[in-house]
Computed example of a mutant assay.
Amino acid sequence: MSESDQAIFPDLKGASIFITGGGSGIGAALTEGFLAQGAKVAFIGRSDASEFAAEMGEKYGNAPLFIQGDITDMAQLTGALEQAQAAHGPVTALVNNAANDKRHSAEEVTEDFWDWMIAINLKAYFFACQAVLPQMRAAGFGSIINFSSISYMMGNAGYPIYTTSNSGINGMTRSLAREFGPDHIRVNALAPGWVLTDKQKEMWVTPEALEGHMERQCLPDTLDPEDIVGGVLFLASKSSRMMTGQALVIDGGVVVTG
């Protein structure tokens, strides 16, 4: 989808957005998608994304705030959210996007590996939600979008801690939607299908694996990071103001219902 095809959400202009892992893959597409709406974006990532941030600043005249840090370090994560507030005002849309789907079998999992995977894929999500709560209360509203995955719905093997976290994100999303709702804060999950990011192409996409997956999709096209942007913009905007505790699936029709 080209940039000109994206819907415009007027309430996102000037909005304060925070994205975890916003410098690469799906996260980079989200950063650009929000910038194209005129939003003020801050994002945290472990790898240096200063070049990407500068490129976005030149393109939109509105550079995102890149904060280099590790989301598994709670002090760094909460500190980044504080920096975002200082720069752009209270965060009113949090996108918990960063994740790691490192392949592993159940037999080889150690306690340390379990803790590391949970820290990235579930713990950081919860504490980002907790840390942004006072900011959204101050603003009087907010939207939290927690990235999950269709992997757990498919019962995929090869990364059981990742799928465990995905399922846990759904449960957490529903409970926080109930808890945060009285403050006009919405909490939804978004489950992408197999999005062909550069990382996926480099590490796990093979002709055989892709052919097998595409046979399960209703739609014949592969998913690109840009295909996820519209759903996130919708969930962040007031267009979805009465939608909370839900899981939006964007997967080309792999996990259809009915």
Rank of each mutant, 00 (worst) to 15 (best):
C218P: 01
C218R: 06
L219N: 14
L219K: 12
L219F: 14
L219M: 14
L219V: 14
L219H: 05
L219E: 12
P220E: 09
P220D: 01
P220W: 07
P220N: 10
D221T: 15
D221C: 02
D221P: 01
T222N: 08
T222I: 13
L223S: 04
L223E: 07
L223R: 06
L223P: 06
D224W: 03
D224M: 13
D224S: 11
D224T: 15
D224P: 00
P225E: 13
P225S: 11
P225N: 15
E226L: 01
E226Q: 09
E226H: 06
E226C: 00
E226D: 13
D227A: 01
D227C: 08
D227W: 01
D227R: 00
D227E: 09
I228S: 06
I228F: 05
I228Y: 10
I228T: 00
V229K: 01
V229D: 00
V229N: 01
V229H: 02
V229C: 03
V229T: 01
G230M: 12
G230R: 05
G230A: 11
G230F: 05
G230Y: 02
G230D: 07
G230I: 09
G230P: 00
G231W: 04
G231Y: 08
G231V: 05
V232E: 08
V232Y: 07
V232N: 06
V232S: 10
L233Q: 10
L233K: 02
L233F: 04
L233W: 00
F234H: 09
F234K: 11
F234R: 14
L235S: 03
L235H: 09
A236S: 14
A236M: 07
A236W: 06
S237M: 01
S237N: 05
S237P: 08
S237G: 02
S237A: 12
K238P: 02
K238S: 07
K238C: 01
K238W: 04
K238Y: 00
K238Q: 14
S239T: 09
S239W: 09
S239C: 13
S239F: 04
S239Q: 11
S239P: 08
S239R: 14
S240T: 05
S240M: 12
R241V: 02
R241G: 06
R241L: 07
R241P: 03
M242L: 08
M242P: 02
M242S: 06
M243F: 06
M243E: 03
M243H: 11
M243I: 15
M243P: 09
T244S: 14
T244C: 02
T244V: 03
T244M: 02
T244A: 02
G245T: 05
G245F: 09
Q246V: 15
Q246A: 15
Q246I: 12
Q246F: 03
A247Y: 07
A247I: 05
A247G: 04
A247Q: 14
A247H: 03
A247F: 06
L248W: 03
L248G: 11
L248D: 07
V249S: 13
V249P: 10
V249D: 15
V249H: 00
V249C: 10
V249Q: 02
V249R: 07
V249E: 10
I250L: 15
I250Q: 09
I250N: 05
I250A: 07
I250E: 09
D251R: 00
G252H: 08
G252E: 05
G252V: 08
G252R: 08
G253L: 10
G253N: 14
G253D: 04
